[in-house]
């Protein structure tokens, strides 16, 4: 397992940058399919929800994420009514906790995913989810992110979407099952009739590729 991290945390600043990957200057932006991912306006809207309690901005967030969160809940909920209820609970939490969204730490979609995930764990699995506490005095603090690096993070959602479309289908399917089907990778192996080792190596390969994209976060 030590091997994984060696791939993940090479210091990208000391490595000659890959063409187009790291440069902040105006390399021509790859054509992105806007319909695929949310645009940056949603992050701005989320910020307006947090700072100004802006209901119009929240409606914009809701119109994009609400139906998707409901579809996410449908994967596990008993019926449409339960999925609707869990979606409303999730979106209400998005409103209440909007100030906790930190665009330097991740994408708006990633943050909303964590809220939906936790609502689902509470409701469907009914188990406790142990989490670290970001304000814990015993937490090992992360090194500060330099301001110019923080700027780059804004493009992460687009870059991530682009990188995911390039994954081999079997790796993408495995990741998707992991996030939607609510079963651990051991059971995914059984479901797909694959050896556990194959599932683990596909997970490893998929992240190795995606990290080439997301490595700039470091």
């Amino acid at each position: 397992m030590g091997v994984d991290i060696a791939i993940a945390y090479v210091d990208h600043k000391s490595v000659p940058s890959k063409p187009g990957a790291r440069t902040r200057t105006m390399t021509s932006e790859p054509p992105t399919n806007r319909a695929q991912g949310p645009d940056l306006d949603l992050e701005t809207a989320l910020a307006a929800v947090a700072t100004k309690r802006d209901v119009a901005a929240f409606e914009k967030v809701f119109r994009f994420y609400g139906p998707r969160v409901r579809a996410f809940m449908m994967k596990r909920a008993a019926d449409h009514a339960e999925a609707e209820e869990l979606m409303q609970e999730t979106m209400t939490k998005v409103w209440k906790q909007a100030a906790l969204f930190d665009p330097e730490k991740g994408t708006a979609s990633g943050w909303i995913f964590t809220i939906a995930r936790n609502v689902r764990i509470d409701a469907v699995r009914k188990t406790r989810r142990p989490e670290y506490d970001p304000n814990d005095p015993a937490l090992s603090p992360a090194p500060e992110i330099a301001a110019d690096d923080a700027l780059e993070l804004n493009q992460n959602a687009e870059r991530l979407n682009a990188a995911m479309t390039k994954l081999p289908p079997e790796q993408l399917e495995l990741l998707q099952l992991s996030f939607f089907e609510d079963i651990p990778h051991g059971q995914i192996a059984e479901r797909l009739s694959l050896p556990l080792g194959t599932v683990k190596s596909r997970i490893r390969l998929a992240f190795a590729k995606l990290r080439d994209t997301l490595g700039d976060e470091q």
Binding site: Q36, P38, R68, V69, F72, G110, W111, I112, F113, M164
Partner: peptide
């Protein structure tokens, strides 16, 4: 978690 978010998108 961002990847989870991308699947939601």
């Amino acid at each position: 978690e961002d990847i989870g978010g991308a699947f939601i998108d």
